[in-house]
């Protein structure tokens, strides 16, 4: 594509096409940034352009990106709270039913159903289920585990988990457009822009 003079610094867009694809379509645009600060500014711009299906990729959680990307608070605490409540009630009911209802038997003069003796197990079950809610809730909300991501077709993107910062725009975003998006990202200081086709 032809570039005008003021965009001479803008990197050329590189297209990566899957070898096995019959009818290649762009599914993802990746823009590489050198620093977190550049990324923060760029992210705020991309947000203001009205993109929906886009993301930032950083080797560590960059503070301030939540605001720059307008990410809303996650549901996760409620999942954890639910897990904890389930664990506590489940643990208490389990002990009560097993030791006081289904097979009550007398041990060391303790009541069949005694609150002090039920607290340790009730507590552990609370923690266990809340923690399971936290771990698997995180995976669920993030749509993990995944083996394949289109990102993995880019060689540059290897550094997203080490020392480079990326913005990705999903091909399904209604504002997705290879040319204009690449120009935008280039203006925002991207050192490289790649389009992944499948």
């Amino acid at each position: 594509m032809e570039m005008n003079t003021e965009m001479l610094d803008t990197p050329a867009v590189e297209t990566i096409t899957a070898e096995d694809s019959v009818d290649p379509k762009p599914v993802l645009m990746l823009a590489e940034f050198e620093t977190a600060d550049l990324l923060l500014v760029a992210a705020a711009q991309v947000r203001d352009q009205g993109f929906r299906l886009w993301d930032c990729h950083t080797p560590y959680p960059v503070h301030g990106l939540d605001g720059a990307m307008a990410i809303r608070p996650t549901l996760l605490p409620w999942i954890v709270l639910g897990g904890g409540a389930l664990g506590f009630c489940g643990g208490m009911l389990m002990q009560g039913w097993m030791n006081a209802v289904d097979y009550p038997f007398l041990v060391s003069g303790k009541p069949f159903w005694s609150i002090p003796a039920s607290i340790p197990v009730g507590f552990e079950m609370t923690i266990l289920f809340a923690a399971i809610g936290s771990f698997f809730g995180m995976l669920l909300l993030n749509g993990l585990p995944r083996l394949y991501r289109p990102h993995f077709r880019s060689d540059r993107f290897r550094r997203a988990t080490s020392d480079r910062f990326f913005i990705s725009i999903d091909g399904r975003d209604r504002r997705f457009d290879v040319e204009s998006n690449a120009r935008l990202l280039g203006e925002l200081g991207a050192t490289a822009v790649e389009v992944i086709e499948e």
Partner: peptide
């Protein structure tokens, strides 16, 4: 598990780690 360093993931991840 297909981690891409996505910030949307980081956002949930950090909360999960804190919890």
């Amino acid at each position: 598990m297909g981690w891409t360093g996505s910030h949307r993931h980081w956002h949930v991840y950090e909360r999960a780690y804190l919890l």
